[in-house]
Design a protein around this nucleic acid. Structure first.
Length: 576
RNA sequence: GCGACUGUAGUUUAGUGGUAUGACAUGAGCUUCCCAAGCUUGUAACCCGGGUUCGAAUCCCGGCAGUCGCACCA
């Protein structure tokens, strides 16, 4: 491998300049954990704030915050206690490790739902051959490794808890509260930015695969009958690079399509999902992902969760790891709410109100319990229920047949009174479907740094520059007196104060030569440098130097804050 | 988890059984100097534990961590 590939340069820069550090380094470190240093934390916060700007402010999806520890029933319902563990077995002949459930695929329908002992039994019974060395009967015990961090809640009779493997569940289990908060109307969305934890077997690839990471997720609850999007027209013309499942078989490559056509041609399942692909694209490009190294890859039918209708990953091209998934956008249907409804016994449905309430004719059965009770005694209750469930036709005739505990009982018609009533039905009860865009913030940060990084040669000297959008750059302005001299330092400090009062994050640096200071700031992506020189003293002007073009403009000090503010907001240097 | 390789300042390096070389970076100062390496000067390292030895960063053993490969990747 290239002794100094881009990844090493990026990570080297990130560690050197205070973006990322290995956690726990004082005590030797542990794979899968990273600290965000001063610049990294600032960059991360700015990226999260842009995410909030789009999802919370623009889309109106309020943000909530739920515990990072969840109790066991949540993850039983969500399937994480089972589906999140990988049963492993090792061939004693060749020492290869395999997913035990994969070995018995085709023998049972849902091998991943079986306990370890059962998988082991099936492997032995079916004389499964080792795919590597062909050995039979060589597989050892099946051990299960759950990717969730387990913990105990409270002393004594400890209640089992898990560190959440995704932020999503905290939102699903608040559905009733949220639905009420949104005054019982669909669609509505909710967001959460927070830490999630997965005890990866072998985290490698630096910040790409972490044991503790930050997710930004939105859960948007929509009607299962209407997956159009009210603002679809605003994104219909936007071009995105798609890599549909059908193209992946024999690498048919990506296609660039207007959103309208992607939906029209049936490539993306529906408008609502397509709208969120576009939103994702806009966010990623705004924070500094290179659009030329971004694509949307559709999940293959076999890699998609069985309940999902359609699922797309935003992927970025990286130098060392190739295409890396940074966002997943899925239509999860009613899977999550139905699962929580089933396990909790609560009704997690919404009423879709009809335009006008429907008048529905219904037969109301009122059995005469003073007769039925004594006659059927202990079966009376079941008889009553059975009667209420009968259809209109079944209620005809002199004897009405109901089935109770497998036996058919004929009930004389005069024991029952029933009448037809007209009822008003306001709407239909549905379990909402969920559209879930799920962002891996740490991976996005890596992508932003890698895509922003450039090495150039200026006057035969190398120059490292992070071309971060001004909006996300940790340090927004560097204030630099041309020389370390008192007469320049004092006005420079005054300018620092002025810019800070205007809410700009500024650093001050008067060490070494001006060129060295420019380079230092280029490397951490500071978009603008303000330089104080001898002309400043005479005419109250300073220069603003642009990181990308290295061009300079001279502006009056009294206009400085305004100009800087404009440039940061527009993410660009304007010399006008 | 398995296998291979690796472990010297912040980074990168030299090194012999007698505690360490240089560079870059960094601190202080000098320099009317607008695009990094001009001058002076300072700070800073042998992954941890045990063994062999008068003496270990160097040899041996163990651990830890990292990199790569296998496997895994909701």
């Amino acid at each position: 491998m290239n002794p100094m590939d881009t990844y090493e340069k990026i990570i080297g820069l990130a560690k050197r300049r205070g973006f990322l550090w290995n956690s726990f380094e004082l005590y030797g470190g542990t794979a899968g954990f990273y600290d965000y240093g001063p610049l990294g934390a600032m960059l991360k916060r700015r990226i999260e704030d842009i995410w909030r700007d789009i999802y919370v402010i623009e889309e109106g999806f309020y943000e909530i915050e739920t515990p990072t520890i969840g109790i066991e029933p949540i993850f039983v319902a969500s399937g994480h206690t089972r589906g999140f563990s990988d049963p492993m077995t090792v061939c004693s002949e060749c020492d290869h490790a395999f997913r035990a459930d994969h070995l018995i695929e085709g023998i049972v329908e849902t091998p991943d739902a079986l306990p370890a002992s059962e998988i082991k039994r099936l492997i032995d019974e079916n004389r499964i051959k080792c795919p590597n060395c062909g050995g039979v009967g060589t597989f050892g015990e099946v051990s299960s490794f759950n990717l969730m961090f387990r913990t105990a809640i409270g002393p004594g009779a400890e209640r089992v808890g898990y560190l959440r493997p995704e932020t999503a569940q905290g939102m699903f289990i608040n559905f009733e509260n949220l639905f009420r908060f949104y005054r019982e109307k669909l669609p509505f969305g909710v967001t959460q930015i927070g830490k999630a934890y997965r005890n990866e077997i072998s985290p490698r690839q630096g910040v790409i695969r972490l044991r503790e990471f930050t997710q930004a997720e939105a859960e948007i609850f929509i009607s299962p009958h209407d997956k159009t999007h009210p603002n679809f027209s605003s994104v219909a013309d936007t071009l995105l690079r798609y890599y549909p499942a059908s193209h992946q078989e024999n690498d048919g490559g990506t296609i660039e399509l207007a959103t309208r056509d992607a939906v029209g041609q049936g490539i993306v399942a529906h408008e609502f999902l397509a709208y969120h692909l576009v939103l994702t694209h806009l966010f990623l490009v705004r924070v500094g992902v290179d659009p030329a190294r971004l694509r949307f890859r559709q999940h293959q039918p076999d890699e998609m969760a069985h309940y999902a209708v359609d699922c797309w990953d935003a992927e970025v091209l990286t130098d060392r790891f190739g295409w890396v998934e940074i966002v997943g956008i899925a239509d999860r249907t009613d899977y999550d709410l139905s699962a929580h409804a089933a396990h909790s016994g609560r009704d997690l449905s919404a009423i879709l109100e009809y335009e006008t309430p429907k008048q529905v004719e219904r037969i109301i059965v009122t059995p005469d319990m003073s007769v039925i009770g004594p006659r059927y005694k202990e079966k009376a209750g079941k008889v009553l229920n059975a009667l209420k469930n009968l259809t209109e036709e079944e209620l005809n005739g002199d004897l009405i047949n109901v089935s109770v505990d497998g036996a058919t009982i004929a009930i004389p018609r005069d024991m029952i009174k029933y009448e037809a009533v007209t009822e008003e039905v306001r709407g239909e009860k549905v379990i909402p479907h969920v559209i879930e865009p799920s962002f891996g913030i740490d991976r996005i940060i890596y992508a932003v740094i890698e895509h922003s990084f450039a090495e150039e040669v200026v006057d035969e000297e190398p120059r490292n520059v992070l071309r971060l959008p001004a909006e996300v750059a940790p340090v927004q302005v560097a204030v630099l007196p041309l020389l370390t001299r008192e007469e320049l330092i004092e006005p420079a400090r005054e300018i620092v104060r002025t810019l800070r009062r205007a809410g700009v994050f500024v650093t001050y640096d008067d060490s070494g030569t001006i060129g060295r200071r420019y380079r230092r700031n280029d490397e951490i992506g500071t978009p603008f440098s303000v330089t104080i020189d001898y002309d400043t003293l005479e005419e109250d002007t300073v220069t603003i130097r642009d990181r990308d073009s290295m061009a300079q403009i001279r502006v009056p000090i009294r206009e400085l804050s305004e100009r800087i503010y404009e440039m940061i907001r527009n993410s660009g240097f304007c010399d006008g």
